[in-house]
Simulated scan of single mutants.
Amino acid sequence: MKREKLLRIFIDSEDKYKGEPLWKFLLKSVKEKGLSGATVIKAAAGIGSHSEIHTANILALSINLPLVIEIIDEEKKIEDFISFIDTILEEGLVTVQDVEVKIYRHR
């Protein structure tokens, strides 16, 4: 058993950083900074910080859905990554919680 931190970054699918989708930039940054990995989860619906409902509506011309990026790693790496994204994140929510890794298998 290993105690780690779970970082969750809540953003919208249309958020950008320097013209690139923010989620894609964050994934590249995770790799460049040597974190264990990350998962991007697209929500079917959600209510954002502006209290607007975001949903996948086939009649909508633009679908701006909530995304959650999850990263599990040691506390130091997570804290360093939070400091990094604090300089680029214009809107969103960032949370951290303790997590106990029971099984982690990789080749």
Rank of each mutant, 00 (worst) to 15 (best):
R3S: 11
R3K: 15
R3H: 13
K5E: 07
L6M: 11
L7F: 04
R8D: 03
I9H: 11
I9R: 15
I9E: 12
I11N: 05
D12G: 14
E14G: 11
K16Y: 03
Y17M: 06
K18M: 10
E20W: 10
E20S: 13
P21E: 02
L22C: 10
L22F: 06
W23D: 12
K24I: 02
F25W: 10
L26P: 09
L26I: 14
S29R: 07
E32W: 00
K33H: 06
S36Q: 08
G37T: 14
A38S: 12
A38R: 11
A38W: 03
T39L: 07
V40D: 05
V40P: 05
A44Q: 04
A44C: 00
G46H: 04
G46I: 03
G46D: 05
I47K: 12
S49M: 04
E52K: 12
I53A: 02
A56H: 12
N57E: 07
I58H: 13
I58C: 03
I58A: 06
L59C: 04
L59I: 08
A60W: 09
A60S: 15
I63S: 14
N64P: 03
L65Q: 06
L65N: 03
P66M: 02
L67Y: 15
V68W: 01
I69P: 07
E70L: 04
I71M: 06
I72Q: 01
I72A: 04
I72K: 02
D73P: 07
D73M: 02
E74P: 00
E74W: 00
E74Y: 07
E75V: 09
E75L: 06
K77C: 03
I78H: 05
I78C: 05
E79I: 05
E79M: 11
I82Q: 00
F84T: 08
T87A: 10
I88A: 08
I88H: 12
I88R: 14
E90W: 01
E90L: 14
E91L: 07
L93F: 04
L93I: 13
V94H: 06
V94Q: 08
T95V: 05
T95N: 01
T95I: 06
V96K: 13
V96Q: 09
D98A: 04
D98W: 06
E100R: 13
E100D: 13
V101T: 13
K102W: 01
K102V: 13
I103E: 11
Y104T: 01
Y104W: 12
H106Y: 07
H106D: 08
